[in-house]
Nucleic acid binder design. Structure first.
Lengths: 190, 190
DNA sequence: GTCTATATGACGATAGAC
DNA sequence: GTCTATCGTCATATAGAC
């Protein structure tokens, strides 16, 4: 039931549209049409409507981002280099695919935190989870846990801001700037 | 005409609502009601409608942010300390006033870059202008211009991301984390 | 300059057939 | 499970009086 392919298709397309357009600009009609999912299925799988659908999509996408971060960081031993290469990878991906940056969180976060407690919570949890892989990598390199956690939050914030700048400027320069400065900071810290 | 108090009141309230709710969630009716401005005035001062109003509000607010940044940075001689205290000031302000962080840009940027070229442009220019005071402060401290500009972009991105995290978490911890890490980075750089 | 009233369309959600 | 048809609401924008 939960892993039904139709349900997953709706979820994926919703996350994509949320990332590009935000919560209020993304209509249920558009999700139906672009996902190719049957119209009747939407309220069958998400009986509570748009808010539930968006919350699930954000949670789903955040989990995927965390998994990707953990994997990318594990691929390179040196922590400064690992974080650097991960962000550069996002920059390349952003340059290729037009504007994908990996942040449906930000768009929903800003719009929904004022309106929907449910959406604010799922965004908060997503950000908290995203900071963990960075902190773990830095602890593994010998940093004190408190400093590692602070750096994890810092990297998350800088990454999210750089994704926004990249989107607006249609140029991944901000992401590469962030990648290089964070590399320096980590090299200094460890 | 341009500096009419009614017009300015509409502009200020629009910027505030954009920051809190984003573009699509902010209705013209709400702007009218909360600003107390006469209903008929809106299309008199902004004949092109919502898009023009939002663009002017974002531009106006970005200019004010740049002016504030320049002033705050000029108040402290040491660049690392100046940037640190500026961001801490934003954190305090965010904690006091509920959630104000100083970023109507982000909300509009994410929603509008996909839809409106006009809004994307004004956001891009706002971010570019915001990075300048940081870069200038660092050049004044003896940093090579290229590095100073890169750090300016980096600080802008980290600040913007931290504002989002602060909003979602209802806690300025992300802003203070960013303030402290950036202080370290600048101390190392100069 | 400011007002009210309204046109027009899109949205989220629901009902009930199949 | 999936479909179509439709309800009620709200949005932006406009028209025309004052």
């Amino acid at each position: 039931m939960t892993n039904n392919p139709t349900r997953q298709r709706i979820l994926d397309k919703t996350a994509e549209l949320l990332e590009m357009q935000g919560y209020h600009a993304t209509g249920l009609n558009q999700i139906i049409k672009e996902s190719g999912a049957p119209r009747g299925s939407l309220y069958y799988y998400f009986p509570e409507g748009k808010e539930e659908l968006a919350a699930e999509a954000v949670r789903d996408n955040a989990e995927r981002m965390v998994a990707h971060a953990r994997q990318a960081l594990a691929a390179v031993a040196d922590p400064a280099e690992a974080v650097y290469q991960m962000i550069v990878g996002i920059a390349h991906h952003a340059a290729d695919s037009g504007c994908q940056g990996g942040a449906p969180l930000a768009a929903v976060a800003l719009e929904a935190s004022a309106t929907s407690e449910r959406l604010r919570t799922v965004c908060r949890e997503g950000y908290a989870a995203l900071a963990v892989p960075f902190a773990e990598k830095l602890v593994g390199a010998g940093l004190p846990p408190a400093r590692a956690e602070r750096l994890g939050v810092f990297i998350t914030a800088a990454l999210e801001g750089a994704v926004i700048l990249t989107r607006v400027q249609q140029d991944p320069a901000a992401l590469t700037a962030v990648a290089e400065e964070i590399r320096l900071l980590i090299q200094q810290a460890v």
